[in-house]
Simulated assay, not measured.
Amino acid sequence: MRQRRVMNQINVVPYIDVMLVLLVIFMVTAPMMPSGTVDLPKMQKTSQAKEQPLIVTVKGRDNWTLEDRQTNKGPSSVKEQELLERLKAAQEQNPDRPVVIQADKKMSYEEVMKLMDLLQRNNVNKVGLLVQSAQ
C-alpha cells in the first residue's frame, strides 16, 4: 500500500469566496449610508463693528488697494511696505480697529492667504475676511 503524504499548503479558495461576498455586500450597502454633510449655522443678522474697518482689496498678485472708511478716503493702490506702514500707524492710534480683506470670488485663494500671512507676520491685529450676506 502507498502511504499518503501530508499537504502543508493552505487552501485559500474559501477565503477568497468569503471576501468576494463581503465586497458585494459593502458595494450594495454603501450607497444607502447617510452622507457626511455638515449643517452649518446660519446668521440672520451680524453685529456691526464698533470701529470703521480698514479694507484691503486683493486685485491680483501683489496688487492691493487700501480703503479707510473712517476718513472716507477712496481706495488707493499700495505696495507691500506702504500697506504695512499705514496699517500699523492706524492700529497704533486705535488698537481695536479691524482690518478686513476683500477679494473677488474668482481670485486665487493663494493670493488671499499670502496677504493674511504677510499681515500676521507683521503683527497686524484683528484681521478678518469681508463677506456678503446672502439675501
Results as ranks from 00 to 15, higher is better:
Gln3Met: 08
Pro98Val: 12
Pro95Leu: 01
Val18Asp: 06
Ile55Ser: 00
Ala134Ile: 15
Val28Gln: 06
Leu129His: 02
Glu85Phe: 14
Pro14Asn: 10
Glu51Trp: 00
Tyr109Asp: 10
Asn122Trp: 09
Val99Met: 01
Val18Leu: 07
Asp68Ala: 01
Glu111Ile: 06
Leu115Ala: 12
Leu54Arg: 00
Val124Gln: 02
Met113Val: 15
Asn8Pro: 12
Met27Glu: 05
Ser76Tyr: 09
Tyr15Trp: 10
Ile25Arg: 03
Ala134Pro: 07
Gln93Tyr: 00
Ser133Met: 15
Pro41Glu: 04
Leu129Ala: 13
Met27Ala: 10
Ser77Val: 08
Ser77His: 07
Pro41Asn: 04
Gln9Met: 15
Ile10Glu: 06
Glu110His: 05
Val56His: 04
Met19Asn: 12
Arg2Ala: 14
Leu20Arg: 00
Arg61Gln: 02
Leu54Met: 01
Val12Ile: 15
Val13Ser: 13
Thr65Leu: 15
Ala103Ile: 08
Lys45Thr: 13
Met43Ala: 03
Ser47Val: 05
Gln48Thr: 12
Pro53Phe: 01
Ser35Gly: 13
Val28Gly: 06
Met32Gln: 04
Leu115Ser: 06
Glu82Asn: 03
Pro98Asp: 09
Ile25Asp: 01
Leu129Gln: 07
Met43Asn: 02
Leu130Cys: 07
Lys88Arg: 14
Leu119Met: 10
Glu80His: 06
Pro31Tyr: 14
Trp64Asp: 13
Thr46Val: 09
Asp68Leu: 01
Gly74Lys: 09
Thr57Pro: 04
Asp117Tyr: 11
